[in-house]
Design a protein around this nucleic acid. Structure first.
Lengths: 333, 333
DNA sequence: CTGAAAGCGCTAACAT
DNA sequence: ATGTTAGCGCTTTCAG
């Protein structure tokens, strides 16, 4: 089933059919109607492969993220989609499963389809992947993180700064025996940066991390719960728990509440990301909004603009105190 | 940057380069090495558009789902990915946002790229979408649901039966004032089927749904909590709450626990889906495993088999009693 | 083992 | 308003 078939059925040239179906150029209403009719009757579906080759235009935007299971990425995709919905462009998603070799392959595959742009999560990639992106010839935007050296454009927050900011909040609220609960995966570069930011921020105030614990595998209530239990068993006098993500913090919160701990008096908790699904827990977890949707939107806008931008957009995460931290005793908020 | 450039740099024909890069046919080690070298130095990325047009082969599998925000779909994608990872095929995801017009468009767009197969969530589509899929000329598999008339292949569970099975469990455990808490969205056809199945199952035992409540918008703890509060205010003597999804059930559970209700004695709760992230709540919610990964795997296998199958695979959801329902007093489990 | 020719299905550019 | 020609970058097929 090709243009040829529709053209024959409608008694016009292929070119006319092409024009009608793409709504380009002037075609008489009569011809137009005949073409639509023929196309519909035959159940014609245009071949975008051929169209793309001939026109040198592909209305796809590649989006490479580590995983769909971690809710942060669908949120970024949502922002991207919101912007692309107003254009001819369509996102195409690829996942790296937190594996940089796989990511390299996915990026390469994506670019081999000659998309109109590429959005990639994070700044850490193999040299080959970076080289490929640099030569892509289309707008490339790295998202979620600005702590590093972007290949081209970038939109994100500074996770290092987010960690420091959290340290400042913790200190201002009078906590000083801080424990960190995070992922042991070195491939979660952004969590690592927050971890380092936290430590740096504590040191500025002459404090040190009192203890830390790391887990393998997925975040979740169970993970948060068991990490929290293990950490508090080892270091019972902690007065603050900073989690790499709200999902784990939620598990920790439930554990602490069960044990009858006084939150936020005896112990404070904070997470990261601000997940809407968690509204409805017994207490709102203190967190930092990671601006995921805004990041997606901004990145998509840069692709739509279609300039080989090198712009780096730094968004600011917002601290949300929730119910699991004390009031600010220093600045008196 | 085309094959031509690489061929010139390596001093061979385009054809030879093509063979080396695709690892097809015999090429001497010396030539092979030269080609790789040239290709690498030039940063050549093959043009799959042209390749696909010439070879009439596209190693993509279209996957159309309503949304990425609802965790059920990433789980299906995970199953699909697990199977496709062992092949040359790659999934390409499109979302319909629970809008059948949009779904029709997405399916059409997908097929215009001539993928090797198509996987679509659900059995409810516009007539045009069904017609398009029927003429696709590639394997098409509808997933998640088998209560209806598939276009071609299908893999899923019977949500109607799942609702009935839940009714049977509720009754067997001695509950009889049952409330349903679900989505008002008619586009969630599967939840509707469970709802109808539940009612049918209760009726068989001479029971009726004591009350029901519906919400707009996204599921989540907050939604589950407020629905539960509203429903119990209206009908305080309910002894069982059946939710359309575990996410809402979790919110309801937290609410009931806060109010000091005796679960599962005074009141029982059950959800649907079996979400792993929820392990770690104070109680494990009774639920039914919707077999999402298995569905994804099975569907992908049907695509890989590359036969225009009409096979309908019905998987069986597994009831998981958790901690929020009483023991089976009838069958004495 | 390597190369040359033809053509995949469409669209840009140029007629008419 | 419609048609004709050429060619996008690759692979298939056939030669050698």
């Amino acid at each position: 089933m090709t243009l040829r078939d529709v053209a024959d059925a409608a008694g016009v040239s292929e070119m006319t059919v092409s024009r009608v179906l793409r709504n380009r150029g002037d075609v008489s209403d009569r011809t137009r109607e005949r073409v639509f009719q023929a196309s519909r009757e035959l159940g014609y579906v245009p071949n975008k492969i051929a169209g793309a080759l001939a026109s040198n235009r592909v209305n796809l935007v590649g989006v490479v993220i580590p995983s769909l299971s971690n809710m942060v990425f669908p949120d970024v995709l949502h922002g991207i989609g919101a912007v692309l919905d107003d254009t001819e462009l369509q996102p195409v998603i690829g996942t790296s499963q937190y594996d940089s070799q796989r990511e390299e392959k996915v990026i390469y595959e994506m670019l081999s389809w000659r998309p109109s742009g590429l959005i990639v999560a994070g700044l850490e990639h193999t040299d080959a992947a970076r080289a490929t992106m640099r030569n892509a010839g289309v707008p490339v935007v790295e998202v979620m993180d600005v702590d590093g050296d972007p290949v081209a454009g970038a939109v994100g927050i500074s996770h290092q700064a987010a960690g420091r900011a959290m340290a400042a909040e913790i200190i201002a609220r009078g906590y000083f025996r801080v424990g960190y609960l995070g992922s042991s995966s070195i491939s979660d570069a952004r969590a690592q940066k927050r971890y380092r930011g936290l430590k740096a921020g504590l040191e500025v105030a002459g404090l040190q991390l009192a203890d830390e614990i790391f887990y393998d595998g997925a975040s979740g209530f169970g993970t948060g719960r068991s990490m929290t239990e293990a950490l508090l068993q080892r270091t019972p006098d902690l007065d603050f728990l900073y989690y790499n993500t709200d999902m784990n913090a939620a598990g920790g919160l439930l554990y602490c509440l069960e044990k009858g701990m006084d939150i936020p008096g005896q112990i404070g908790l904070a997470g990261f990301n601000s997940f809407e699904v968690l509204d409805g827990l017994p207490m709102r977890i203190a967190t930092m909004d990671s601006q995921r949707e805004a990041i997606g939107r901004r990145a998509a806008e840069m692709i739509v603009a279609n300039t080989l931008t090198e712009e780096v957009v730094r968004l600011e995460p917002e601290f949300l105190p929730g119910d699991t931290v004390r009031g600010d005793t220093v600045r008196g908020r």
